[in-house]
Write a protein that binds this DNA or RNA. Structure first.
Lengths: 121, 121, 121, 121
DNA sequence: GTGGTCTAGACCACC
DNA sequence: GTGGTCTAGACCACG
């Protein structure tokens, strides 16, 4: 079992996130084959139902495609992958900033906080 | 009803978050009285039990104190409030950065992304 | 306010306990006058209703007596006070031992634990 | 209904206490499955919500762990269980001793009282 | 009036 | 099946 039980985010979302990140990092490229449902289920120490859900969801997001009898693959549309990278980045940043503002932090506090945290690593 | 139904975060956590943000923004100061359980329940369009849970949790976090028969109050320990502000800020920033890194973004991409997004507002 | 708000035991019981302990320690002797309801209420930072309850309860326990127009006094029956001391001690010890046994500690573990804790003070 | 109504301690605390004692007595071992919420609710003659609260609290104390969709289990960390035993013992003893001292009993009176009471059983 | 606990019963996501 | 959350409405002790 390679996933984190301690968080309360649904396991299938954790797995989707992990796969998407591998994709935008380039570890998984357009058209690459994803593990079979059963394989990934074993790898992750998870019920096959859960993996099934992961793949359905990724298909809905047009990030993966299922070819009947062959398996599930990263979409072949490279443009969709670039778009995905942008989407995830923008989404992440805006939600971060809006949260910080809601907590009353100023723009400069935010930039400084991020810079310092990145330095100290 | 003033809370978000479209998110999957439990209502009581949403309310805690909202109150904590009001506190660290300084809208609620040390020692201030919080609304009574029943009052807040009406304000939020929520069951009193849910608010009860909010206040219990905030007391556990030492952000609120309850005085029997009198009501629930923001803690009188100013230091705890400063600490809370730091905690929430650090927590927010680190989780943001670790997410971004996991997606393969570099430190400079992150800082730039944040700076640009803040400018365009 | 000289009492402890942090515990969840009712305030009136805390006050009764405190008074009884002063009595069996001999700080308050048989026949001594107790403070008036209003006085004690101010001393303790507590509502007079609460003190009223304290005195009623102590009267029920035959530890205090109220003389109309004069005030409330520690009972004059010295024997009752000795008895009280014994009662409280026995009660305390038996409930302690039965708790420890219920937790699976042996007689010798209990005696040793108590001895050691008393030494290290 | 298997719990004490005649005490003023909340039912959920009584149940936690009972479970913790079973654990430190070794009747429930590390990793053992606890009854499901609904099961225990029936056993105890109590509402499922009350048991829910018991399990949440025990998880917060790191005495229990819940596995989504599977159930609630005694923590697998044996060290935590040893620690729990120590904690409960120390807690019990110190509160007993401080109570006795506050009542004016001397160290030797305390030790003797405990020894004698244990002999007469 | 306040918070604290409890029951009854519901719906949800997850495995 | 499991735990997690929520509503509705009740009763209690306390100040």
């Amino acid at each position: 079992m390679g996933h984190d039980f301690h968080t309360n985010q649904p396991i299938y979302l954790q797995i989707i996130q992990r796969l998407c990140r591998q994709i935008i990092r380039g570890e998984l490229g357009a058209g690459d084959k994803l593990p079979s449902v059963r394989e990934l289920a074993v790898q992750m120490g998870v019920n096959p139902n859960t993996v099934q859900r992961v793949y359905s969801e990724m298909e809905r997001l047009q990030v993966a495609e299922t070819k009947r009898g062959l398996g599930t693959f990263v979409t072949e549309k490279e443009s969709r992958l670039k778009q995905l990278r942008e989407e995830l980045m923008t989404e992440q940043i805006s939600s971060f900033i809006s949260d910080m503002k809601e907590m009353g932090f100023t723009a400069s506090e935010i930039v400084e906080g991020v810079r310092k945290t990145l330095e100290h690593e």
